[in-house]
Nucleic acid binder design. Sequence first.
DNA 1: TTGAAAGCGCTAACAA
DNA 2: TTGTTAGCGCTTTCAA
Lengths: 355, 355
Amino acid sequence: MTTMKEIAQRTGVSVSTVSLVMNHRDAGRIKPEIAERVRQAASQLGYKVNPMAQSLRTNSTRIIGFISEEVATTPYAGGMILGAQSAANRLGYMLITVSIDGGMDEAEEIAALKRYGADGFLYAKMSNRATTVPEQLRDCPVVLADATDRDGGTPSVEPDEFAIAHDATTYLINAGCQRIAYVGCDVTDDTTNKPIVAQNGRLAGYRAALQDAGRTYDERLVANVLNNGPALKAVGELFEREQPDGFFCFNDARAWYVYECAARRGLAIGKDISVVGVDNHRVLAETLEPQLTTVELPHFEMGYWAAVKLVSLIEQRPLDDFEWPETTAPLPQLDAPIPAKIHCTLIEKNSVARH
Amino acid sequence: MTTMKEIAQRTGVSVSTVSLVMNHRDAGRIKPEIAERVRQAASQLGYKVNPMAQSLRTNSTRIIGFISEEVATTPYAGGMILGAQSAANRLGYMLITVSIDGGMDEAEEIAALKRYGADGFLYAKMSNRATTVPEQLRDCPVVLADATDRDGGTPSVEPDEFAIAHDATTYLINAGCQRIAYVGCDVTDDTTNKPIVAQNGRLAGYRAALQDAGRTYDERLVANVLNNGPALKAVGELFEREQPDGFFCFNDARAWYVYECAARRGLAIGKDISVVGVDNHRVLAETLEPQLTTVELPHFEMGYWAAVKLVSLIEQRPLDDFEWPETTAPLPQLDAPIPAKIHCTLIEKNSVARH
DNA sequence: TTGAAAGCGCTAACAA
DNA sequence: TTGTTAGCGCTTTCAA
């Protein structure tokens, strides 16, 4: 690793001069000709700044800690990490990801991250749950991803659950479905004992879309389920009782129950019934392609934008200083997604700041 | 953040003394009484070493870089990360994970990791592919995870593909199946154009288990497939042509095709036919529970052991210095996995060094 | 048995 | 316009 000292020696200047040049703080302070010589030497020697030394001096590491609770257990959460990593790279930051699934001790992990000098933190959940920011993070820059702050004080980037459901339901309406069911998620918030944010928003979007089309919402067409056997049973009953011809499913695990029930009854997807799912898990979405129509959750984008917001917080620069490129997830695109705009919202102090 | 200086002042000793004590190098050099006072002050002030300063001095960061290509696109790869993180924590290391899926530039990411001073690297793939270690990593400690080194010079931790398949097939034999099919994976190595390592090993294990039970291997019972429509079609043909009553599936995506076909033919899993899958994706395994019998891939363990091996390399200590605890993945355990021992192997210089 | 001092690579205030 | 100097928190000789 080349050091500034070596560049200084080679160029015949002092280390401070090199430092100034390498940090682009030479305008008007260093003779352009010298600056140029320094830059040349640097690139010749392949100089890269030593982040350790730099941060020892400046107390800023350009490290972002990414804390997530369900990455290992929720497939395709990876998209969110990828987005955050991508933005961090672009902005000259390093992303350090820690999972606190299972056995991991959250406090311990956060402490380690702090010891390594993280400048700020991304705190990510899955399925947009109400979340309390851990005590240790209270005095640091923090942005939530796919989560909603219980106290409303911390900015968050969330999917636009309402729009997702509205789009999906409208798609089924336009496809000519007469009896559209919603297969939702029965998971409740540990604290409030109310349905998780995503379920709330999607149910509302489903309802609104029906009403916007002049239909009446009928709760008998709604089945909120958990997993496996009981879920399969509930969906089966929905089939028998209501004979829906369209299904909007909370995620693709739920979509699978519909598939299973349809297959057992000899009904063909895309012919006898239509199914739209949200690709929380995406494996099924890929496997069932192209029978399953999908609304893609903008995981990549959420990660990306959350990281950008966090950097704006860290560097105390207004958000508008940053480009918000038309990022696209580098994940395999599904064949037949609903051609909807990306629904993703930055929420700050309880108000939507940027779409 | 408390520094050694503060401890020194409070205790009335010098920083060097504190350093010695904090690094457990005080035996016979520092009066035990003084050492004790230092330790007390340290814990009172909640002293934590500053890794930046430490590594600036020592040229060792206790950072491990985890490079993986398909984490974002393969659900439950997270288990491997979790395992590596868990081992790293235990051994006082920090894991920095970078994904090089999609748009990411591998060389760039590795360079960043090196700049941050990573002491060594974990290089992970999915489904045990033949892999060439990137040039930049040649002169660093590296361990492969769920991958096989093409050149055989780099240690790797891999699933015991043969045993996995042997177990699964034997399970089906013991369950009384007469015609056991293998639904394999048709992906080939980019370079050699041969099937990926996992496919090879599993096919061999399937074959051996049949022969061990005194049966003959019949290649008409084997369908190696890719995805979606064509896969479904191929499995459908297998059903019609051979009428198998047992299926060993390369992963749960493949298991799903069997499910779909069975459902369409009115066959019940666990009654008319038996299915065993490997939980590469696991979402399906969880969703289909408990109908699908599963051989769990030891992702967590591979990550854990790979990290341990890497640390032994970094610190140039023999592997036996480290405990190899009976680690268990903190992931939700499947309900009905095949009660098999964990199949996971450390391969070094083309020979199995540790099971 | 302990401490003083130098230095890892970098930044920043101050001097020249 | 440039260089000198001090110091971030730590480790490590070397001297006492």
